[in-house]
């Protein structure tokens, strides 16, 4: 779904929650007259289960779209092996093969990107602009962060991931 220039993606979990509560509401309204009398309130609440994740995704996607050009201008292209804990907070660009994809269904994908020098975790806190798959050659723009905010090995907080061939 496109809102303005932003391609909004609702996670399958949000849709599943909406479907489950819709079924529950239907069953409850069939068997309970009290529920039927409150449908005017319950139906909007039900739709909020879809609207809120959609709005959050729109907000994060539009913010990422704004900061991507800044990262494109500032990020240095580095090899994976050169990313280290002294670079925490630095914008970087890496190019490599997508070896693994996790949690895509939650709209919080994590990738394992490898180049000749090594592999690194890439975390994204929203859905990517472009769907990327294992074995794609990708370019990642992002910031070096620690895996668990203050501890853990360096990983990349991804702002943009796209196929380069």
């Amino acid at each position: 779904m496109k809102i303005g220039n932003v391609d909004v993606k609702v996670s399958i979990v949000a849709i599943a929650v909406f479907v489950v509560f819709t079924i529950l509401l239907l069953i409850a309204s069939v068997f309970n007259p009290d529920v039927r009398s409150n449908l005017i309130l319950l139906i909007p609440c039900l739709f909020m289960l879809l609207v809120i994740p959609t709005a959050l995704n729109y907000m994060s996607r539009s913010q990422y779209a704004e900061i991507t050009p800044v990262y494109e201008a500032e990020a240095k292209t580095v090899r994976v092996k050169l990313v280290n804990e002294n670079m925490i907070g630095k914008p970087v660009r890496i190019q490599g093969v997508l070896e693994r994809v996790y949690f895509q269904f939650l709209n919080r994908p994590q990738y394992l990107v490898a180049d000749r020098s090594g592999a690194i975790s890439v975390k994204m806190f929203t859905s990517p602009d472009e769907d990327v798959k294992v074995d794609d050659v990708v370019e990642v723009l992002g910031q070096v962060i620690r895996r668990y905010i203050i501890v853990g090995e360096p990983v990349i907080n991804c702002v943009s991931i796209r196929k380069i061939k």
């Binding site: 994976v80 490599g96 093969v97 490898a114 180049d115 050659v137």
Partner: peptide
């Protein structure tokens, strides 16, 4: 561009 995969994690 030729990019090789990293060694398997040991």
């Amino acid at each position: 561009m030729v990019i090789q995969m990293s060694d398997e994690k040991t």
